[in-house]
Design a protein around this nucleic acid. Structure first.
Lengths: 153, 153
DNA sequence: TGTTATGTCTATAGAATTAATAGACTAAAA
DNA sequence: TTTTAGTCTATTAATTCTATAGACATAACA
């Protein structure tokens, strides 16, 4: 289950992706519009910036903008930055590897050998989806619904 | 990331799958052999029994056995019992659905529309793997390693 | 029948993680 | 040099996860 922190990040990124490019958005505005606790959002945006997904400018006229086009920002990269990892077991993590406490032998651990498949499946789907997908799918759904409404009038 | 509870469940189930069929295993033995806190394991085994994956018998000669052959026990079913769910967002859960707090409109939520793919990928891989895979892959790895050792002598 | 073995159940305590807040600091612009 | 806005470090609050305790119920067997 994805944490609230990551959901907040998605919301903020979607908001930024929908802002005319170059126009910085203030943390305060983002927090208000998306209903995210401001201080918590600060921390999230900072993580995303350090992760290379956002750019910021301080001072008047400052704020946050995407550092890349939305279709270059994968959902996987967002999750990795905020959840620390994607792997279902830490002994499978590349970014955050740790041996499992009581693992007698990693090479023959049935849990690990099976979770590898899960890890690959997750990484594949998460790295195949981007912020642009989030925006586009939402728009597509809105349009479809709009048509339904139009017809029904 | 999978919880310790679920890892303990895997270990216990693998142990049971490796026990001659019909032979009940005591909680105490499982706890000792697999290095799992006994009371915690009690609770885990109880959950698995209520979930239909284990059978138990009380009294002398009692203990736990698998309720199904290992190749009929999917990893997905184990995870669902212990983690409550598989879905990355609760609004996508079938077993445990809940509307996301601040979701304005579920039908057009970009997060939800994207996480659907993740949900499907996860369910597919988890329901395609079984306890038997865990056991077999471990054995296969052991055999391979054994051969390497043999050759090197 | 009663004694022992074993799982069941409810409650609670402790630890770890996640979510949220506070306040001082730094950088940029006008 | 004043105002705006992000940065950083600490701390607190809430929640979830892990673990433990103890009384209870059930089955086997002498």
């Amino acid at each position: 289950m994805i944490s609230k922190k990551t959901i907040y990040a998605f919301k903020a990124l979607i908001h930024l992706a929908g802002t005319p490019s170059g126009q910085p958005v203030l943390i305060a505005d983002l927090a208000r519009d998306e209903n995210i606790p401001k201080k918590f959002l600060e921390f999230i945006l900072l993580s995303l910036r350090k992760g290379g997904l956002l750019q910021s400018r301080v001072g008047k006229g400052g704020g946050y903008t995407l550092a890349l086009p939305a279709n270059k920002i994968t959902i996987g990269s967002i999750v990795r930055i905020l959840e620390g990892d994607i792997a279902p077991v830490q002994c499978l993590s590349t970014t955050n590897y740790a041996r499992c406490e009581e693992c007698r032998d990693e090479a023959t651990c049935g849990i690990r050998l099976t979770m590898t498949d899960v890890n690959v499946a997750l990484a594949t789907v998460l790295d195949g989806l981007t912020l642009a997908d989030m925006v586009e799918r939402s728009e597509a759904a809105r349009n479809t619904l709009q048509n339904v409404v139009d017809y029904s009038i």
